[in-house]
Amino acid sequence: MAPFEIRNLIRRRLRKIKKAMLATEFVFELENEPESVQTEIAKLFLSIHRAIMQLETKQLTVIRDKLKELEGDIVAGENELKQAFEKLDQIQQDLARATAFLQIVNRVISIAA
């Protein structure tokens, strides 16, 4: 099993435990326990929460780094597409300029004639 999958598995199991510890039944039952047990459970809850946070952040970091590796090619691709698009824009402008120039030449010729 890949490290990412192992983290997924552990995170999902910890989430289940955390969910059970947040349930009303558990909370109310715990209130009947001695202070020392309540403190111990609260510390355990915090440890589980910390572990989940760390696993999530690690998994998000792995994904971010993978995506970052691909960003260079995505940016290069975008620039390539932009250049093709700009070529079309350039063609349109060139045609408009050439037409305007020939219109003037035709007017000069007709006036001269």
Binding site: K18, L22, Q38, T39, E40, I41, A42, K43, L44, F45, L46, H49, M53
Partner: peptide, 14 residues
């Protein structure tokens, strides 16, 4: 969610 977890865990921090 983090805030709620902290509130819940505060009891364990003596």
């Amino acid at each position: 969610a983090d805030t709620i977890s902290l509130v819940k865990a505060r009891k364990g921090l003596k």
